[in-house]
Structures are given as C-alpha cells and as structure tokens.
C-alpha cells in the first residue's frame, strides 16, 4: 500500500504517516495534560490505571537496568506507549498505522541505535563506552559493529513487516470475506500490535542496558579483584 503525501513543502513531504503520528502525539499529549491536572494523593480509577501502567514500565526498566533506570525510562516508556497506540490505531477504519511505514520504523530504530551510544557515553564516558566494543577481545570489534548495524535494521524491519502484513491481511480478508469474518484477525492484530510494541521497547532496553552494564560489570569485577 503506497503512503499518501498530504502536504509537500519544498523537500519536506508531510505524509499520511507523519499526520497520524502528529494525531497520536496530540492525543497522547492531551491525555497526559488532562491526567496531570487531575492527579491527587487519593487517586481515582483512571489515575490508578495510569499509575499502574507507569509503575509497571518503571518496574520492568529497573529489572533490566537497575542502576540508571531513571535516565532510560522516558525513552523506553515513550517507545512502548507510542508503539502500542500506533500499532493498534490501524484497526480503526480510515486510520493508518504509522508503524506500517518503513520510514517510521526505521526512524524509531535509528533513535534506538543512537540512544545506545548516547546513554553509554553519558553514563560511562566516551572511553569507557568505546572500550566495550573491544570486549572480551579486540578481535570482536568488527562483529560488534556489524551487530550494531544489523540489529538496528532488524528492529525496523521486524516492526514494519509485522504491522504492515497484519494491516494488509486485514484489508484482504475484509475485501474477500465480508463484515464479521475479520474479527478473529482483529483480535490477532491487537495481540500482535501489543506484542511488537513490547518486543521493540524491550530490545531497545536490552541494547542500551548491554552498553551500560558491560562497563558496570567490568567495574564490579575490578572492585572484586581489588578487594
């Protein structure tokens, strides 16, 4: 399915994907603003649900990255929330899922790709971060570099392929079988959308965590040896 261009201003093309992303951003920002104004120490049902989601994400991030969870949390939480909404929005008739566009998934993958050295250098320093490419031996450096590139491509392609194929299958079944038949496929779409969001965010968390915790493990080993 080709991505339609809505507006084109010089070299900048505002496509259907970008428009849907803005819509999702507006909705998420509006909901966040609405919730943040109604927060209280004695929470209602909605606040309990929101706090539960945020706390569950924080707990997951801390279970993988216990030391610097508060730094990584905004990126990972935003990835999960955005991807869950973006993956599922395609179910609504007339709306297009941004993650069915390779440009969007590639953008998110490149954000993850860049966030790994970003957090690694900020937390470990440039020298400490670059050292992990030579771990356990300098011979591993090319493989580390290839792995950095390929896993980013895999992130983008996995998410794009799953969401795009689900949307396409849904359209095809809807065209072929009629009104009620796609319902099981819709349920599968919901599960797959949430699962892909979780996998993408979890992999991003693990990539960032591996860059940070390699240094952390090395520091702990040195402390043990010194002791």
């Amino acid at each position: 399915m080709p991505i339609q261009t809505i507006i084109e201003i010089g070299p900048v093309r505002v496509t259907e994907t970008v428009m849907m992303t803005w819509l999702i951003m507006a909705v998420l920002a509006g909901v966040a603003r609405f919730l943040s104004r109604r927060l209280s120490r004695e929470p209602g049902l909605l606040q309990v649900a929101v706090e539960g989601i945020i706390d569950a994400i924080d707990h997951t991030v801390r279970s993988v990255l216990p030391v610097h969870a508060e730094r990584v949390f905004p990126l990972i939480a935003t990835l999960w929330i955005f991807l869950a909404v973006a993956n599922l929005i395609g179910i609504v008739p007339g709306l297009h899922s941004p993650t069915a566009d390779l440009s969007a998934t590639a953008a998110l993958a490149i954000v993850v790709f860049l966030s790994v050295p970003w957090f690694g250098i900020r937390i470990e320093g440039l020298k400490g971060y670059l050292r992990h490419y030579l771990h356990p031996t300098p011979v591993m450096l090319p493989f580390h570099l290839i792995g950095e590139f390929t896993r980013t491509v895999a992130l983008a392609m996995r998410l794009f392929g799953n969401v795009m194929s689900l949307e396409m299958a849904l359209v095809l079944v809807l065209v072929v079988a009629g009104f009620l038949v796609p319902i099981p496929l819709l349920a599968l779409h919901i599960i797959e959308g949430l699962l892909q969001a979780f996998i993408f965010g979890m992999l991003a968390l693990i990539y960032i965590g591996s860059a940070i915790q390699t240094q952390e493990h090395r520091r702990q080993s040195q402390q043990k040896e010194a002791a």
Partner: peptide, 28 residues
Amino acid sequence: LDWSTFGLQVLNFLVLVWLLKRLLYKPV
C-alpha cells in the same frame, strides 16, 4: 524509505519523549 518522513518521525518521537516526560512521567 522516505527520508523526509524518516527525519520528521525522528523529530516527532523526540518531541513526544519530551512532551510525555514533562506532562506525564514527572507529574505521575
């Protein structure tokens, strides 16, 4: 791969991170 969409999506996501961090994560 549309580079214009790619760049806008990167920008959009970073803005969304900033928005949610200010409007949701910090207050919660």
